[in-house]
Structure formats: structure tokens, C-alpha cells
Simulated assay, not measured.
Amino acid sequence: MNLYRSARAVAGASGEHAIDWTAAAEASKALTPPGSLDIDEADKAGYRADVRDARREIERVGGVDVVLPDAIDVHNRHHWIDANVTTFERVMAPIEHELGSFPGIARTVNTGTMSVLLGYLGRNVLGQYDPLLLAESADRTHALYFVHPNIVRVAEQLDLDRDRFRRWIAFHEVTHAAEFATAPWLSAHLERHVETSLRTLSSGSFDANAFETLDVAMTVVEGYAELLMDHAFDQETGDLRRKLDDRRQGGSPLQRLFRRLLGLGLKRRQYERGKRFFETVAEKRDLAFAGRVWNGPEALPTAAELDAPSQWIDRMDETL
């Protein structure tokens, strides 16, 4: 960690937009040890086998097609930051253009905040399926990443078998690939509401309807992934979930505060709320019925239906 280099990068933030993305990436990497990518042939084969097996089992139990990226990327933390600073820049671009030029001190503060965010996530993300929202190029429409140093570190911290833990992460991320393949409308739906939410926030207001719609969609994405993975994963998962939940809730007071500021508590609530919804649907009906959620935006549950799954089931019955 090089605090001086990070501070120098932030202090040198320039340009006309709210954030100097090049400086944010440099500063976040200065704050974040890259971690080792010393991966032997067994590790390489393990990642390939985990993704291949996840695809096969998810297609089998879910009755869905899984479309995977051509390349599966095994990153260190700096690689992950470089990939995601591009995503953040792309998502923020529409409102940055509307806001126009920023005074130097505001740009410096924004750049520093973004560098801390990227550094924290880079040290903690384990795997990621990225549908590349708002991407302009059709050359690469989605990506699948594993942050190998984080997987190794967390497996050691939680006293888990590393290969089994890596496999569980792979299954989770491949379920997200299945969702976006099953629902080709999902990317555009998320993009539209992300843009709406950001635009209203940038104008100093808050669009509660847009935020609720986005929150519901992300809760469905996370909840369905949990359901599908529970049925597809070929090993016991109880201890994995318990230890990861303890990790999400634990840490120092500063770490817990930082997670709240980043909205990571919201993501955990989305996991839990979505999982309860889909477990109820699958219990009352089956996995195939739960998969109706991807029939179109109109098939998504409302916020009220997420907490009363029987209402969503009744509505889906009426559409037959």
C-alpha cells in the first residue's frame, strides 16, 4: 500500500468531468496490494472444470440455456480494478455529460471517493458476472471474473477447502449468466432504471419509484441465483453460507460502517429477501414455475409481491 502515491494521484485529478477515472484507478491500485496470481496447472484446470460443471448442472436443473463469455478471466485485484473502473465510467457517463465541467476541488473529492470505493471492492470481490451494462461495443457483451487472491485469502480466513469454495463461487456467478441468457430484456431493463436513478440523484432529487423498480429487479436477480445454485451445486452448502454470512456481518466497526455507506447491507438484504421469495415459490410450485419471472418485465414481482409470494403465484396463474 502506497498512501503517498494514492494521495498524489487524487490531488492531480484533472479534466472537465466529475471524476478523473485514470487518477481514480491509479489511486485505488496504490491503496490495494495486487495479490498473487501464481496459479499452477491444477488451479487453472479447477477454474475451467468448475465453470463447465456449473454450466451443465444449472442447465439441467433449471431447464435454461447458459451463455458464457468466450474468455473466463482470473484476475488479481489490480486487474479487477482496471476492468471495473471502465464499467463505473460507462455507467456514470450519461450524467457526467449533463453536469458539465466541475471545479477542481469537487473533482478531487469525487475522484478520491471513487478510488476508496474501487480499492475496497477490489480487496473483497470474489467473483463477478458482468453483463457490461451500457456497453457501446458489441465485441464483448459480457464477462466473467474470478479474483484469485481474494478467493485464496477468504478460504484461509474461513477455514474452508479452497477448491470447494472456488467451485461454489463459480456456480453462483454462472447462475447470473443463466439469468441474463434466459431474459434478453433484462440488461435493457436494468440500464434504463440505473440511468433514471442516477439522473434524478444528480439533479438533487430522488425518484423513489425508479429506485424501487431497480431494487426489485436486483432482488430477483440475486434471489433466483440463490435458488438455482442451491439445486445445482453438487455439495453441501450449509457451512459455506453460514461462514460467509458471518463474514458479511462481522469485521471491525469501521468495516461495518464502510459496508453500510457502500450500500452492501442493501445487497445482503436483496439476497435474503429474494431467496425467501423464490424458496416459497419453488415449495408451492416448482423451479420451472419460479422461472416464469423471466418471461418479461411485467412478470417481475412487485415490491409487495416479493413479501407475499402467493400473490405473485396467483397473478402468474391468471396469465396462463
Rank of each mutant, 00 (worst) to 15 (best):
T200I: 04
I151W: 09
L160T: 06
F233C: 02
D234C: 08
D215F: 12
E222T: 03
F211R: 13
M229N: 13
E191R: 02
E156N: 10
H142K: 07
P184N: 08
L160V: 10
L240E: 00
T141P: 07
E156M: 05
D246S: 13
R248Y: 14
H172W: 10
D161W: 11
A155H: 11
R247E: 12
A188N: 11
A217H: 02
L198Y: 01
E226L: 12
H231E: 14
R162N: 09
Q249S: 14
A177P: 05
L240V: 01
Y224I: 04
T219R: 02
R247D: 08
L214H: 01
D245V: 09
A155L: 07
L201D: 09
P184I: 05
E212T: 01
S202G: 15
A143Y: 11
H193E: 04
R247L: 15
S205G: 13
L190S: 05
T219W: 02
E236P: 02
Q157S: 13
V152G: 12
A183H: 03
S187W: 06
L158K: 12
V174R: 09
E226H: 15
I169F: 11
G238Q: 11
V216L: 07
R166Q: 13
F171K: 02
L228D: 03
D163L: 07
F180N: 02
Q235E: 15
V216C: 06
A210S: 15
F180I: 06
E195N: 07
L158S: 10
D245Y: 11
R192D: 00
Q249Y: 14
Q157M: 11
R241H: 15
F165P: 00
E222A: 07
R248W: 14
K243S: 01
T200E: 14
A183V: 05
F180K: 02
D245Q: 12
K243E: 00
G238S: 15
D230N: 14
N150L: 06
E195P: 02
T182Y: 08
D215E: 12
L201E: 10
D159G: 08
S202V: 05
D239I: 00
V220C: 12
A183L: 06
A188L: 09
R166V: 05
F180L: 05
F206K: 09
S187H: 10
D159H: 13
F146E: 10
A178G: 10
S187L: 04
H193V: 03
S202P: 07
V147F: 10
S197E: 02
L227H: 04
S197P: 04
G223E: 01
A217K: 01
H193M: 04
D245C: 06
L244D: 04
N209F: 08
S197L: 09
H148W: 11
S203A: 14
M218Q: 13
H193T: 06
D163H: 14
D159P: 07
L190H: 02
T196C: 06
V194Q: 05
N209W: 07
V216G: 02
L214P: 00
L198A: 09
A225K: 01
V154K: 14
T237M: 12
L198I: 02
F180A: 06
M229L: 13
H148I: 05
A181Q: 10
